[in-house]
Amino acid sequence: MSFLKANSAVRTNAPSPTPSNTSAGSSKRKRPADGAPPVVYSQPMDTGTGEHVFTRLTYVNDYLRERKDKWHSFDEIMGYLNIPPGHVQREQLRVLMRTANDANRISWDSANEKYRYRPKLNVLGPEGLKAYLQSQKSSLGLSIKDLKDGWATVADDIAKMEDKREVLVQRNKDGVAKTVWMNDPSLMLPMDAGFAKNWHMVRVPNTAEELRKALLSANMKAATKAKVIVPGTGQKKRKAIRRNGKQTNTHMAGILRDFSGMRK
């Protein structure tokens, strides 16, 4: 504006970040007396974290997995989730817990209205494992990881069964059991000491060529033939000159100059 001059600008002091104790209208904060009730400040609003119905269904699975040795009532599970009577999620969870599908790991007893964790394999001990393996129509092995879902001490129990020759176990390079098969101890007969000695005296050829010669010397037919090395002539084959594509300008042969003779 015209009545304001450049050298007469109004300056205002910035407020102090910490008010002075001597300023008017300010009071120094006092420490609370001993035994006084604590001051309750405002709390953030409830964001609903962990209250989604499918999140709570996951909590139910974890709760039943940790207590899979017995059945649990519906009210007991709702009490664990702290869901009061009349809450809309009670009926939603009741329906989800009774749903029969492969993804649902909860078993439901309709007669007593109780629930229990359902493992991937219904094998809970050594006797159950032998019964399950004997009932199989194939000789497929069982994953130790799947057995551990319902059998917490499967690793130690499998090692004891292996010592008794009741099962065959596949282990990784660290010695951890991965797969287990059924084994029949009655088929594991002792071997004659003389036969075992003669067996270990048999020398196995180191190479395929030695094996072929050993078979021929025993009047047996070898599956491979002797390797024949064809002697070379000693002359290095000359590399053919590579032509860069097909020549299409044949009608201009009299005009264009040929530089192929300058190629090294």
Rank of each mutant, 00 (worst) to 15 (best):
residue 175 G to I: 09
residue 131 A to L: 05
residue 177 A to Q: 07
residue 154 V to Q: 02
residue 136 Q to Y: 07
residue 153 T to N: 15
residue 177 A to R: 02
residue 162 E to T: 04
residue 178 K to L: 11
residue 170 Q to M: 03
residue 153 T to P: 08
residue 184 D to H: 08
residue 133 L to D: 11
residue 139 S to E: 13
residue 176 V to C: 08
residue 159 A to R: 12
residue 158 I to A: 01
residue 160 K to D: 10
residue 156 D to P: 00
residue 172 N to M: 10
residue 163 D to L: 14
residue 154 V to P: 03
residue 176 V to E: 15
residue 164 K to I: 00
residue 158 I to N: 03
residue 146 D to H: 13
residue 176 V to M: 13
residue 159 A to S: 12
residue 187 L to V: 04
residue 163 D to Y: 05
residue 180 V to E: 04
residue 176 V to R: 11
residue 124 L to C: 05
residue 162 E to N: 11
residue 166 E to C: 00
residue 173 K to H: 10
residue 126 P to G: 08
residue 154 V to Y: 02
residue 162 E to F: 06
residue 157 D to E: 15
residue 187 L to K: 02
residue 158 I to P: 08
residue 146 D to I: 03
residue 135 S to A: 15
residue 143 S to W: 10
residue 177 A to C: 00
residue 135 S to G: 09
residue 177 A to W: 02
residue 169 V to G: 07
residue 144 I to A: 15
residue 146 D to T: 04
residue 158 I to D: 07
residue 135 S to K: 14
residue 170 Q to P: 00
residue 152 A to P: 09
residue 137 K to F: 03
residue 129 L to W: 11
residue 169 V to R: 00
residue 153 T to S: 15
residue 129 L to C: 09
residue 187 L to F: 00
residue 133 L to F: 08
residue 168 L to N: 05
residue 127 E to Q: 14
residue 163 D to P: 00
residue 186 S to G: 04
residue 154 V to N: 06
residue 157 D to T: 04
residue 153 T to M: 06
residue 172 N to T: 09
residue 185 P to D: 10
residue 148 K to F: 03
residue 183 N to T: 01
residue 128 G to D: 12
